[in-house]
Nucleic acid binder design. Structure first.
Length: 863
RNA sequence: CGGCUCGUGGUGAAAUGGCAGACACAGCAGACUUAAAAUCUGCUGGUAGAAAUACCGUGCGGGUUCGAGUCCCGCCGAGCCGACCA
């Protein structure tokens, strides 16, 4: 098959065009102030989620999104935009480090090799990236600025009065370390013994590590945290102005998990300290019949009675040894232990038994709840199992069973709340609690602060040192930005230490910053580098700043200078394409950093990505997710070898809607390959010797009215389809166009002058090659196909004198008739009623109404 | 259990509330060829019919509408995500 003669000589011209584009910098986007910059051109920033260059290379799934953005980039250039379309590498990360450990090669070497392979694969697809802007997160010239941004976080705080991130110097208190956006905390973390590292909650799936699937346990460790929760509110509300899929916005909202409720203080009968509880249903306070603390709650040891101590400690041990997986799986059946303590219900002085149970999580709210079994499913199950009191305090509307009823209703058995609706009761009790100093209304979030340190070698070192203060206690201090970048030392042994000490702790030389100070040995997580790469692309070589003011302003807002008073709501990357797997984490983290830098005055837009599009997953030919173990992975290399890059690009776009999940089919590739062959033969003819020459059928003749109609309908449809990301239907329209012209001889060469520019974003190599060939004979074909202005359709060619109308009787198709395009309604009605088929269908019936839709149909309603 | 997305030929899929199945794939028949490949032509939702044509048809049941694949309600099924979030 591979040796088979190709339908058109793509093996020769595809690589030739790729080198020509590279050589003459065809897709270089000039920055303000650079040669070639034209201030009259509007900007368009189209971005792919840059890849992690794994050892596996790209598969056809990666290529889908990249092809879509490439089509948009090429389209926008032809429409006169200054298009920024960059590519780079998210190259820090665990797989490279683990591969290094296994093979003894330095991750820097394997990473460089993987990048070279990825780059070659991308270039073989003819993508129009501006390669002069290539960045890698592992390059010291890049991560120097990642570290610089960390310093911004370290040196700033969230001012609750202004609700903005401000320099730490505006903090009026005496303990700045308590408010910094980057802070140190002793946290129970997800420790993965196999990987020898701590993982973020997001990297743990069903109690196992996302990478490798190793078991993960909880253990307390000193960690760097980022105070993302300070911006929780804005991370929700500022989603509103973004052109993102609603589903993704919802995912982010749910992840942040805002809920309104109240904090309520319960005093404990035998303790000096109260226990605080968060509830979204303060209106059910009179229905609280017991209280539950999380087994890890710090108050548990103090309040536990002597009689219950053994049972409580036993239960704590049991829960502690369970992985998160077991804990949630076994959670179907409620478990718990009585502490022997009693809490006092602040509204009525009732004594409530205090239990511990693992269905209450330390990580949410205060780690303690008031249990209202009558109106909460979990409390109801628990109370039923342990025979605790259940008291109704909400009357459901229309006579529903009140047991376990969690909806809104009317308050009962609640003294001064009785008769109030749920909403009113919430308001009243919250005000009452506040007045008595027993609680207050509050908003709680599921979002936790971001665990930002990793015990790894292959990541950005922190620009932090530890030195002893007067009391001999170690204290962290930020390095000056002049000391950046902090580069990892070259080490032969970067294996995990097996303890919580990171591999960098073995670099004894590097570790020592001065007589009194040592370096932080943790490194940043992989997310760090990808949080701001879209900014660096705007000004990738800048050694003075992470991005120049001019470049930032131009590529984010389209204006050369944006004064503070003109700050934009819209702006940023115009189009961002990538998979849904980054719907919460990467996108949330990047938005967080962007907002911090925005508040600190380094950026001109509050959001990084104006428009987001998610491409669907491409399944293997067997309809299963592509994976090495299933053996159903299709690589671009094999497809390009056999059918060429243009066929691969075209097929990826022809498969179906971009956002949809769809299976791969080699037969489908063959289909678009045949189509490209037909386009080729529109212009070229094979000689006896097997060479190609310009087809003698091509003549400088006018298009017929019908040909003009097809041509202009194609311009119109392809243009609007590209704007709507409906690439599959754009391609089918170009197939219609081609089918119209292959059968005609002589063939108007003007048809190709329309088709080739339309086709060039999709199949750029073929379009360039044919355009250049035609230029040798027809002087009309100047320059390059990819540099042509985008064709514009003329509506006058689409109008036809006679249109076919369909005639329905009661919505059922009965006849078709031809009529003048602008015929009057009354005339059409008369024509339709005169049709024999209509008469057949209406005899003996009364015509009630006739609906005429101009140019489309006539519907006769009979009774 | 909850949320989201989606159910259309043998397959991938089209269809601003207005001719369901465009464009492809596969299949069948034919042309070219010694033959094959490639290419080209025709047919290709189901049932009945030689055909014209007729009837049926977008997961199921209701509703809105002159008219529903499309909008609304309820079910069934699939995929993805989140799952004890108080």
């Amino acid at each position: 098959m591979a040796a088979q003669r190709k339908q058109f000589p793509f093996p020769e011209f595809e690589t030739r065009w790729q080198s020509r584009w590279l050589e003459d910098g065809a897709f270089r986007a000039p920055n303000p102030g650079e040669t070639g910059f034209d201030p009259a051109k509007p900007k368009y920033y189209v971005l792919d989620m840059f890849p992690y260059p794994s050892g596996e290379g790209l598969h056809v799934g990666h290529v889908e999104g990249y092809t879509a953005t490439d089509i948009i980039a090429r389209f926008k250039r032809m429409r006169g935009f200054n298009v920024l379309h960059p590519m780079g590498w998210d190259a820090f990360g665990l797989p490279a480090e683990q591969f290094a450990i296994k093979t003894g090669q330095h991750p820097r070497e394997t990473t460089a090799r993987n990048i070279a392979r990825f780059k070659a694969q991308l270039q073989a697809l003819g993508f129009s990236y501006d390669w002069s802007r290539e960045v890698s997160t592992t390059d010291p010239g890049y991560f120097r600025w990642t570290q610089w941004i960390f310093l911004q976080l370290y040196n700033s705080w969230h001012n609750p009065t202004t609700k903005k991130i401000e320099p730490i110097s505006t903090y009026p208190g005496s303990e700045p370390d308590k408010v910094r956006l980057a802070y140190v905390a002793e946290m129970p973390v997800n420790w993965c013994p196999a990987l020898g590292t701590v993982l973020a909650n997001e990297e743990v799936i069903d109690g196992k590590s996302e990478v490798g699937g190793h078991p993960v346990e909880r253990r307390p460790l000193r960690q760097w945290m980022l105070r993302i929760t300070a911006l929780a509110e804005r991370l929700i509300s500022e989603l509103d102005g973004l052109d993102w899929p609603e589903g993704i916005k919802l995912l982010q909202k749910n992840w942040i998990g805002r809920s309104e409720g109240a904090m309520v203080k319960f005093s404990i009968f035998n303790s000096r300290f109260p226990v605080e509880v968060f509830t979204t249903r303060p209106d059910t306070l009179f229905g609280a019949t017991y209280m539950v603390l999380s087994p890890e709650h710090p108050m548990v040891p103090q309040i536990t009675s002597a009689a219950q101590r053994a049972a409580v400690e036993d239960y704590q041990k049991q829960v502690g040894s369970k992985s998160d997986l077991e804990r949630t799986e076994l959670a179907k059946d409620k478990t718990g232990v009585f502490t022997g303590a009693f809490a006092v219900n602040p509204v009525n002085g009732e004594l409530l038994p205090v239990w511990i149970a693992d269905y209450v999580l330390m990580g949410y709210g205060t780690g303690a709840i008031m249990a209202v079994p009558a109106h909460d499913q979990r409390d109801f199950e628990f109370a039923t199992k342990f025979k605790l009191k259940i008291r109704q305090v909400v009357q459901p509307p229309d006579g529903e069973n009140w047991q376990g009823f969690t909806g809104d209703g009317k308050a009962v058995n609640s003294q001064f709340l009785d008769g109030l609706s749920t909403t009113e009761a919430k308001k009243k009790i919250t005000a009452w609690l506040k007045e008595k100093g027993l609680g207050q209304g509050t908003i709680n979030y599921k979002l936790r602060d971001w665990l930002f340190s990793r015990q790894r070698y292959w990541g950005e070192p922190f620009p932090i040192i530890w030195e002893a203060n007067e009391n001999g206690k170690l204290k962290h201090r930020a390095l000056d930005e002049k000391e950046l970048p902090v580069v990892q030392p070259d080490m032969d042994d970067f294996k995990p230490t097996g303890t919580a000490e990171p591999p960098l702790s073995k670099a004894t030389e590097w570790l020592k910053y001065s007589e009194k100070a040592t370096r932080e040995t943790n490194t940043m997580p992989q997310w760090a580098g990808s949080c701001w790469y879209y900014l660096r692309f705007c000004d990738p070589k800048n050694s003075e700043r992470f991005i120049s003011k001019d470049a930032e302003s131009f590529w984010m807002t389209g204006e050369l200078q944006t004064s503070k008073s003109q700050l934009r709501i819209r702006g940023g990357v115009d189009l961002y394409v990538g998979g849904t797997e980054h719907a919460v984490l990467h996108l949330l983290y990047a938005r967080f950093w962007h907002k911090v830098l925005f508040d600190l005055g380094h950026l001109t837009t509050p959001e990084p990505f104006q428009r987001l599009v998610n491409q669907g997953i491409i399944l293997g030919p067997d309809n299963q997710k592509m994976s090495k173990s299933r053996g159903n992975v299709v690589t671009p290399d094999t497809v390009i070898e056999e059918y060429g890059a243009d066929s691969l690009r075209l097929y990826e776009m022809f498969m179906g809607p971009l956002e949809q999940m769809k299976p791969w089919s080699m037969k489908g590739v063959e289909g678009v390959y045949r189509f490209l062959g037909r386009v080729w033969r529109l212009a070229m003819e094979e000689t006896q010797e097997g060479d190609w020459k310009i087809s003698p059928d091509l003549k400088e003749i006018d298009l017929t009215p019908e040909q003009l109609r097809v041509a202009h309908a194609t311009i119109k449809k392809v243009t609007s389809d590209v704007e709507d990301f409906a690439f599959n239907t754009a391609i089918s329209q170009m197939m219609v166009f081609t089918n119209e012209f292959v059968k005609t001889t002589p063939r108007p060469v003007a048809a190709l002058k329309i088709l080739l520019p339309l086709l060039s974003p999709f199949a750029p190599h073929l379009a360039e090659e044919l355009w250049e060939n035609l230029g040798k004979k027809f002087p009309d074909f100047k320059g390059r196909a990819s540099a042509q202005p985008w064709p514009v359709h003329d509506e006058k060619h689409l109008l036809v004198e006679e249109v076919e109308l369909i005639v329905q009787v009661n919505g059922k198709l009965r006849d078709r008739l031809k009529a003048k395009r602008d015929a009057a309604d009354a005339e059409l009605e008369k024509l339709a009623l005169a049709s024999p088929k209509v008469q057949e269908a209406t005899t003996g019936k009364e015509v009630v109404k006739v609906i005429v839709i101009k140019g489309k149909l006539i519907n006769i309603v009979v009774k």
